[in-house]
Amino acid sequence: DEVEIEDFQYDEDSETYFYPCPCGDNFSITKEDLENGEDVATCPSCSLIIKVIYD
Rank of each mutant, 00 (worst) to 15 (best):
Q9H: 03
I5E: 00
I53F: 06
K51R: 10
N26L: 05
S45N: 14
S47K: 12
V52Y: 03
I50P: 01
F27M: 10
S28I: 14
F18K: 07
D25F: 04
P20F: 07
E35S: 14
Y10T: 05
I29K: 11
S45Q: 08
G37V: 11
E32W: 04
L48G: 13
E6T: 07
D39S: 14
C46S: 03
Q9E: 12
P22H: 04
A41Q: 09
S47R: 09
D39M: 14
I50N: 07
T42F: 14
P20N: 15
D55K: 01
G37M: 08
Q9I: 11
D11R: 10
K51N: 06
E4Y: 09
E35G: 10
Y17K: 00
C21A: 01
Q9C: 04
P44H: 09
E38F: 07
E38W: 07
C23F: 01
I29H: 09
E4Q: 04
D33W: 09
V40F: 05
N26T: 12
L48D: 05
I29L: 08
C23T: 04
C46N: 01
L48Y: 02
D55R: 07
S45F: 03
E15D: 03
E35Y: 01
I53E: 02
P20T: 09
C21T: 00
E4T: 04
I29A: 12
A41M: 09
D7M: 14
E32I: 02
D39N: 06
C46R: 00
S47Q: 14
E32L: 07
L34N: 06
S47G: 13
G24Q: 10
E4D: 12
Y10F: 14
D39A: 10
E15F: 14
I5V: 02
S28N: 15
S45W: 02
V3I: 13
P44L: 04
F18T: 08
I49A: 12
V52P: 07
T16Q: 14
Q9G: 06
S47V: 07
N36T: 10
Y19E: 06
D13G: 14
K31P: 05
S14N: 10
E38G: 08
E35W: 03
T42V: 06
A41V: 11
D7R: 07
F18E: 08
E2D: 15
I50Q: 03
L34P: 03
I53T: 06
V3S: 00
C43H: 01
E15I: 12
P44F: 05
E15T: 08
E15V: 03
P44W: 04
D25I: 03
T16M: 02
E6I: 13
K51D: 08
S14W: 06
D7S: 11
S45I: 06
S28M: 15
D33L: 08
G37Q: 06
A41T: 02
E4R: 04
